[in-house]
Amino acid sequence: MVKKQVRTLLIDDEPFSRDELRHLLSAYPDFNIIGEARSAEEGLEKIIELEPDALFLDIEMGERNGIELASTIQKLKKVPLIVFATAYPDFAVKAFRVQALDYVLKPFDEDQIFEAVKRIRKAFPDESEQKSKLHFSTEDTLKLAVQQDETIHYISPKEIDYIFREGNVTKVISQGVEYITRYPLKEIEEKLVDHSFFRTHKGYIVNLNHVEEITPWFHGAYQLKLTNVEQHIPVSRNYVKHLRQRLEL
């Protein structure tokens, strides 16, 4: 049986931080932002009123901090999962003493939010895995849902040349056509782990079956030439050795 979406509350006194979290979490359709709070006091009221499944909670918020709020809500009948989202790494030990599930540092990035999302999902064992499958199904009918204009297309991994991140958008290049998808690279990479894809750079994933050449670029970095693709794909020097191992017999 499929559970409800993860009802999530954001508690932070900085509007920009709440906006950034809302944006990063929008990549996960099973996370429903049900509200925001600007202080620990307002956060407590909304926790009692809305009964969220999970909190993204700042620590330093004026007179009463997030650690104190987390301690207080342990007495509630329904205690939400807590992810501390803060600029201060020194509070980590105290955070886990109040049963924090995770601890992410500002400025946020999609990889650390992805890891927090995974931990929250694992805390809901009955949650249908299909909510996080990116519309992939069985081996024979494996598809990725992508969008071009107003149309949704379904493409198989073997048709994908490469995937990259441009600003806040993930783009998929398949047979010379550019599509977009709402999912972050980290999540796509994990779902493609059993296929011939490789993370060459923080912003690129390539289909190794389409690689024709690898050539030196500068400062130890390389570039990839893919079949029927004009764009050269960057390879960070930290990935070069592993990439060559994957490509060579």
Rank of each mutant, 00 (worst) to 15 (best):
M1D: 04
K4V: 00
Q5Y: 08
Q5A: 01
R7N: 06
D12Y: 06
E14C: 07
P15F: 11
P15I: 09
F16I: 15
E20T: 11
H23W: 04
L24R: 10
F31V: 08
N32T: 05
P52M: 08
L55W: 00
L57A: 01
D58M: 03
E60M: 06
E60T: 02
R64N: 11
I67H: 01
T72K: 15
Q74T: 05
L76H: 14
K77G: 11
V79C: 13
V79W: 15
V79H: 12
P80M: 04
A85C: 02
A85I: 02
A85W: 05
T86P: 06
P89L: 00
V93K: 10
F96C: 03
Q99G: 05
L101E: 05
K106G: 01
D109T: 12
E110M: 13
E110F: 14
K122D: 09
A123D: 07
E129D: 10
H135W: 02
K143T: 06
L144R: 04
A145D: 00
E150K: 06
E150I: 03
T151D: 00
Y154M: 03
P157Y: 03
K158R: 15
I160P: 05
D161W: 06
E166C: 08
G167P: 07
G167Q: 13
N168H: 04
N168C: 05
I173Y: 06
Q175P: 04
V177H: 07
V177A: 01
V177L: 04
I180E: 12
T181H: 02
Y183E: 04
L185F: 12
E189D: 14
E189W: 00
H195Q: 11
H195M: 09
S196M: 12
K202G: 09
G203K: 08
I205R: 05
L208A: 14
L208D: 11
E213P: 08
I214A: 12
I214M: 08
T215M: 09
W217I: 07
F218W: 10
G220T: 11
Y222E: 08
Q223V: 12
K225Y: 15
L226P: 10
E230S: 13
V235K: 06
S236T: 01
R237S: 07
R237A: 14
Y239Q: 15
V240Y: 10
L243M: 13
Q245W: 02
E248D: 12
L249G: 15
